[in-house]
Each structure stands twice: as C-alpha cells, then as structure tokens.
C-alpha cells in the first residue's frame, strides 16, 4: 500500500495532468459507444420502445424490401462519395502544396487565400453552392448559353439538386473544395522535409521533372500521403452536412441517420446506421493502413 502511495506521489504530475482530459474523452467515448449500441438493439415504433435487446434493426436491412432498397442505395452513394472524395483530395492537396512550395513574391497572401475554404463555415459553403447552382442561378444560365463567352450545352434548365448524379457531384465538389487546405498543409509539411539536394543530384544525372516527381517526391512523401488518405477517408465516411443540404432527396448514410432520428422518430434504426458507419470506418482505415504499408515497403526496396 505504501509502495503504491509513494509511486503515486512520485508521478503525481503525470497523473494529474492526464486524468482530466482522458476522463473526459474516455467517458464520452464509452457513453457514445454504449448508448449507440443499446439504441441499435431496440425496436421503436412511433417514437416509443416496442422491443428491447433485439436484432430487429439489423435484420430489417435484409428482410424489409423497402428499407433494403433505401439502405443499399444510401450505402452505394456513400461508397461512391468516399471513393471519389479521398483520392481527389489527395490530388488537389498535392497540386496546391506543390504550387506554394516555391518561394515567390506574394507567397504569404496566396497561402492565406488557399487556406480560406478551411476558415469559412461549412454551412456557408453549402449555401453558396446552393445559390450558385439553384434554378435561375449562374450555373444554369451558363450551361444554357445565356452568357456570350460560353457555348450552349443544354436547352432546358437543369435542376442540380433534384438529379441523383449532379446532387451527389455537387456535395463531392463542396467537400473537396472545403477540405483541400487540410491535405495541402499535411503534404506541405512533408514536402518541406525533402532535401533540395536530392533533386539536384538527380538533375545532374539527367532526370526529368516527371522522373523527379515519381522517383523522389512520391516515395519520400509516402508518410504524408498515407496520413492524408486515412484521415480524409474517415472524414468522407462521416460526411453529413454537404449531402444534407445539397442532396436531400438522395441521402447518404449520414443523412439517413438524421432522417430516421429527427423526422421518423426512430432512434433504433438511426443508431443502427451509425454502427454500420463506424464499422465501415474501422474496416477502411485498417485495409488502407495495410495496403499503404505494403506500398511503402515496396517503394523503399525499389
């Protein structure tokens, strides 16, 4: 007992410094997980508990044809969203990072401008996209050839929000627009650690810019690239606000949660969808880590 007390006193700073933060995070992590699991195992009808500890919500995915269609559509859309958004953010982030990795006059201002999307609230971004692509807005006028500098593409006014492809495309555009600065910053930190001498050595041996990029930049940037891919894919699975405002009639899984929880007052189904999302996130990050490790090892050996 005394030993424990002495050890405690010796490490008191460590303990006191760690306890508040981790108690807070741990408490919420536990409660959220437990509560979601409990809700997902409860059957609700009209806002009241009908049956507890049942797998009804999970079985419903396969048994109920209506719900099956809704769920699998939402799942497909989410999957497309993730598969498109994650690499796209890597590419846009890499391009912008390489653009400002040079020193030039006005670099600070350009960097600030490229960081702007991160600072603007998401809901503002969605509202601007909504205005830009609304009926009678700029985009429809542009595509109908109303402006002299742009050719006519459509004869009629297309409604971006109520078309399954354009509405998801619009949310993808918004998501990439908003989150590019984050991947840019992560990749920029990676780029700045690459030694300039390596490029010079390659150049004296006659390497082209393209070779430089594929044989020096990409392999040395692998740690940053992996963290971008993993972090961004998690965020893409979790996305809610862009599709919620821009594609309300074509829900992805996150929007489905809101629909069931708020509109249909069925927390059981909502929590079940949440659990499915968490499983998807865990599986994706595990698989991605595995693949990226493999690639990394291959690149280092080659």
């Amino acid at each position: 007992m005394r030993k424990i007390l002495i050890a405690f006193r010796k490490n008191s700073f460590l303990i006191y410094s760690l306890i508040p933060a981790f108690l807070y995070i741990g408490f919420f992590a536990l409660i959220i997980g437990f509560y979601l699991l409990k809700l997902s195992l409860t059957k609700y009808a009209g806002g009241d508990v009908v049956l507890s500890s049942t797998l009804y919500n999970y079985i419903k995915i396969f048994d109920d044809p209506m719900f099956n269609k809704e769920f699998s559509d939402a799942f497909r859309r989410t999957l497309i969203f993730v598969i498109v958004v994650t690499p796209l953010q890597l590419v846009t982030g890499l391009i912008t990072a390489m653009l400002i990795n040079k020193s030039f006059a006005g670099r600070g201002i350009v960097r600030s401008i490229l960081l702007l999307p991160l600072a603007i609230p998401t809901i503002v971004t969605t509202s601007v996209l909504l205005i830009l692509f609304s009926k009678g807005g700029h985009m429809t006028s542009l595509l109908m050839g109303r402006y002299s500098f742009f050719p006519k593409i459509f004869d009629y006014e297309i409604s971006f929000i109520s078309n399954p492809y354009t509405s998801i495309g619009l949310s993808i555009f918004g998501k990439v627009w908003r989150d590019t600065p984050i991947s840019m910053l992560i990749l920029l930190s990676g780029l700045q650690q690459i030694n300039e001498e390596q490029y010079e050595a390659a150049r004296t041996m006659g390497a082209t810019a393209v070779q430089n990029f594929f044989y020096i930049t990409i392999p040395l940037l692998m740690p940053s690239i992996s963290s971008v891919l993993i972090l961004r894919s998690i965020e893409a699975w979790k996305e809610f606000i862009f599709p919620y405002i821009l594609a309300p009639s074509y829900p992805i899984l996150g929007v489905l949660i809101e629909k069931y929880y708020v509109q249909l007052m069925d927390p059981g189904t909502a929590a079940m969808v949440g659990i499915v999302l968490i499983v998807c996130i865990l599986v994706t990050s595990y698989v991605l880590t595995y693949i990226l490790n493999k690639i990394n090892r291959y690149l280092i050996r080659a």
């Binding site: 460590l14 760690l18 995070i25 959220i32 979790k238 929590a271």
Partner: peptide, 28 residues
C-alpha cells in the same frame, strides 16, 4: 514521459474521432 498504457491513451484519442458526428450527436 514513458509509461504503461500510453498506446491505449493515444488510441482513445483517435477512437473518439472514429464516431461520425451525426451519430455521436444522439448520445451527446
């Protein structure tokens, strides 16, 4: 400091980011 369970604490920090906001908002 180095101490036992450091990896677990780091995992805990990450774990809370695995919850989608839209589903963790229900319990919160």
């Amino acid at each position: 400091f180095k101490f036992n369970g450091k990896a677990f604490l780091l995992f805990l920090i990450l774990a809370i980011r695995f919850y989608p906001d839209i589903s963790s908002v229900i319990p919160v």
